[in-house]
Design a protein around this nucleic acid. Structure first.
Lengths: 172, 172
DNA sequence: TGATGTTAGTTGGACGTCCAACCAACCGGA
DNA sequence: TCCGGTTGGTTGGACGTCCAACTAACATCA
């Protein structure tokens, strides 16, 4: 069924040339950065979902499970999950709905605050997420397609970009 | 209505520590890279769609219009669009449907090949995309939140990552 | 010429994201 | 004490992505 074949040139490089040709040379680097991030996101997400798909997970749900697994008690308020993963409350509701349907997580009433709902990892969920993490580590994270020093450099730069975008603030 | 407030720490840095603590030190850098790209994608897409929203566009549709605008004749087969933007044929159909509804693009029969459909930029579409490009250039691309040298470095690294992921191949 | 295979595009469904609107519960000041 | 403002979560709608299935139309080869 004809795997989508690669281009014979770099589309982002081509776009940069077009941008300069249009007289937007000063915006070209930013455009290239944005487009690179978009495309890389797409590639990585594809690999990840391919790795998680067979075990019925997606990256979004994996992140939720991982967060719960790393938490002290294995349960967190939905609002906390949204803050940590930086996603909209509606996205959390959606993810928890599906995880709950699969029996990987349970919704529990908060003991004192009647507004908040806790998501609690089930035993099944804990087993599942560990397995998924191993799969991702071996099939994706350890071969990202970049030498270690470049990985560190990119992460550092993107961290600065995120900080400059008010993604987080240093702890004073 | 309480803009979502930033975290007081870097969640990716925290995730890296957790990864190492779990005994996955060798996968931690890759995990950090992937997560950084995901989050940066989300931030940038948010800024872009905020800039384009007022003029009724999204980044996906903007890219289609831009590609047509840069093309020699202002018209391209849908399949070509999908290849260039590296998206699924169904995504192209979707984008063209909406652009056509807004009168920015028209579907035209290919003169010789009865299978292919051409997307043709309308005058309105050409005006619109130029305006959108100016908006993006000034509000997003020229202030990406990173100094120029770092932008170039990140783009270079991501280009290599894409090449290593068969995103494109050098022209021999 | 006719069977077979490939390519182009559409459709429907599954998921993800976001926003706006809405309800319930908590909280703080008059 | 009670009223108004905040916070937590859900719901419905708009969009984007992908995949699988399906129809046309072109191409190839016996």
């Amino acid at each position: 069924m004809a795997r989508r074949q690669p281009l014979r040139f770099d589309p982002i490089d081509e776009a940069s040339r077009n941008w300069r040709k249009a007289g937007w040379a000063d915006a070209a680097p930013g455009m290239a950065l944005v487009t690179s991030v978009m495309r890389t996101h797409q590639i990585l997400l594809g690999k990840i979902d391919a790795a998680l798909g067979p075990m019925g997970l997606t990256f979004a749900r994996f992140e939720v499970l991982m967060l719960l697994d790393f938490s002290r008690t294995g349960r967190l308020p939905l609002s906390k999950i949204g803050q940590r993963l930086q996603v909209h409350p509606a996205s959390v509701t959606n993810a928890i709905d599906r995880l709950e349907l699969d029996g990987l997580v349970e919704r529990i009433q908060h003991p004192t605050d009647g507004r908040t709902t806790l998501a609690a990892l089930t035993d099944e969920g804990r087993r599942h997420v560990r397995e998924a993490a191993e799969a991702l580590n071996t099939t994706v994270f350890t071969h990202v397609g970049l030498p270690g020093d470049q990985i560190a450099s990119v992460v550092d730069s993107l961290t600065e970009l995120r900080r400059n975008s008010d993604d987080f603030v240093e702890p004073a």
